[in-house]
Nucleic acid binder design. Structure first.
Lengths: 224, 224
DNA sequence: AATGGCTTACTGACAAGTCAGCAACATGTG
DNA sequence: CACATGTTGCTGACTTGTCAGTAAGCCATT
C-alpha cells in the first residue's frame, strides 16, 4: 500500500522542502502558449468557437492538434484562456493610464471605435464570440454576460457623473445599454458591408444618446 | 443525338403508351415542408446553422434526416429556404397595411421592439443567424447583408422625409445604421441578461438618434 | 534520469449526403 | 370504375469525413 504518488501524504514535515513532483515548465513554454492563444483567438474569431478546430489552431503554430491539447487539456479550456488572455491585453493597454471616467470615458470609446477600423480581425473575433455565446450552453456565455454587465456599470457611472447625479439610475443604465448596443450593432454592419462608416456612425450615436440623457427636455418623443 | 432525356433510347416498343411522367407533389406536402422549415428555423435559431444538425430538425417533425434531405437536397438549401420563408412571413404580416414611412416607420420600429419581448425565440434566431453570418464563407451572409442594406435605405428615406429633406444623405444613412445597430445590439444584451429593458432602451435610443439628426444644433459634441 | 514537449496512432462520436428499396398514393388508360 | 404505372415520401443502412480526446512513446532540455 505504498504511496500512490511519490511524496507521502502524511504529517507535513515542517521543513517542506519538496523538490520534485512540481511542474517545471521549460523556458520558452510561456511564449509558446501565448502563440497558441493568439492563433486560437484568430481561429475562433474568424470561424467561431464551435466550427473552429484544434487542428486549425495547431497548424498556425506548426504542431499537431494533440500538441495543443497537451498545453490546454480541452478545447473549452483553450477558449477560456483565450478570453482571459484578451482581458489581460486590455488591461495592459490601459496600464499607467487611469481607467477613464466621466466625459473621458466617452472620448475613449469614440477613439476605440476609430481605432477599430484598422483592427478588423480583433473586431470580428469579439463580434463572433459575443453573438455565438447566446446559443445554448455556450462556454463563453458567462464571460460575455459578465463583460456586458461591467461595461454597463462603468458607462452608467460616467453618465451619472457628467449629469451631476441628476440622471436616474434607470435612465443612466438604459443609455449605457444603448451605447454598448449601438457600438456592437454597428460593428456587425461594418463587418458585413464596408460602406458603413463605423467611426462616424458610432460617434454620432454616442453623442446623440449622451445629449438625450443629459437634456431630456430637448428630445422629441414618439407618440404612445 | 438530340433527345438526351425522354425514354425510348431504343426503338419504341409499340404497345407502350407511357403518359404520366410529370412531377406531381402530393397533397399535404407543402404543409409538411413548412413544418420542416419552422423546425429548422427553431434549430438554427437556438444552436446556430453550423452546429444545428439535420437530425435535430428531422426529429421535431418525426422523420429521419434523410427525409429532410429528400425535401431540400442539402442543408444549405434548407437554410436558404428558411430565410425566404421568414421573408414571406414578414411580408404577410404587413399585408394590407401600407409599408410604413415617415414618422410612422419609427413608431412601427418601437412597437416591434415592444412586441419582441414576447418573441424570444424569433429574436434569438435572428440574432444568432445575423452574427454567425459574419464568419468566413457563411451561406447566409448575402441574405443578411442585403437585408441590412434595404433596411438602412428605408430608414434613411424616412428620416429625409421627416427632416423635410434638409438632412444630408450621409447623416441620414449614419442615423439609419445607428438605429439598426442599437436595436440589434440591445437584443443581444437582452438575450444574455434579462435585466436589460429591451423596449425602453430601444425607444429611448431611437428618440435620441432622431432628435440628434433633426436638431444637430442641440447636440453636445465630444472634443476632437 | 527525469520530465516537459511534443508526435503518431488510435478511438468513439457525430455529421452530411447517397442509395436501394418500400408503401402509399395519384393519374391516365381501358 | 378499376387498375396498372410509376412517382412521391420516406426509411435504414452505408459511406465518407471531421472532430475532440486518449495513450504511448521518442527526444531534448534541464
Amino acid at each position: 500500500m505504498v504511496s500512490v504518488m511519490d511524496d507521502d501524504v502524511p504529517p507535513v514535515p515542517a521543513g517542506t522542502s519538496r523538490r520534485p513532483a512540481v511542474r517545471r515548465p521549460r523556458k520558452g513554454t510561456a511564449e509558446r502558449r501565448a502563440e497558441i492563444l493568439r492563433a486560437a483567438a484568430h481561429t475562433f474569431g474568424s470561424k467561431g468557437y464551435k466550427t473552429g478546430s484544434l487542428a486549425d489552431v495547431a497548424e498556425q503554430v506548426g504542431i499537431t492538434h494533440a500538441g495543443v491539447l497537451h498545453h490546454f487539456g480541452t478545447k473549452e479550456q483553450l477558449l477560456i484562456e483565450v478570453l482571459e488572455y484578451r482581458d489581460l491585453e486590455d488591461v495592459r493597454d490601459l496600464e499607467g493610464q487611469h481607467i477613464p471616467d466621466g466625459m473621458e470615458l466617452f472620448t475613449h470609446l469614440v477613439r476605440t471605435a476609430r481605432a477599430n477600423v484598422d483592427r478588423r480581425g480583433i473586431v470580428q473575433g469579439y463580434t463572433v464570440l459575443t453573438a455565438e455565446s447566446v446559443t445554448e450552453d455556450h462556454p463563453a456565455r458567462n464571460w460575455v454576460t459578465q463583460r456586458f454587465a461591467v461595461l454597463r456599470g462603468e458607462i452608467a457611472h460616467a453618465i451619472q457623473e457628467i449629469g451631476d447625479h441628476k440622471v436616474s439610475d434607470e435612465q443612466a443604465t438604459r443609455a449605457a445599454s444603448a451605447i454598448i448596443g449601438v457600438m456592437d450593432g454597428l460593428q456587425v454592419q461594418w463587418l458585413l458591408d464596408g460602406t458603413v462608416d463605423l467611426a462616424e456612425s458610432t460617434t454620432f450615436a454616442i453623442e446623440a444618446i449622451l445629449s438625450a440623457v443629459l437634456n431630456p427636455a430637448e428630445t422629441t418623443h414618439l407618440p404612445e
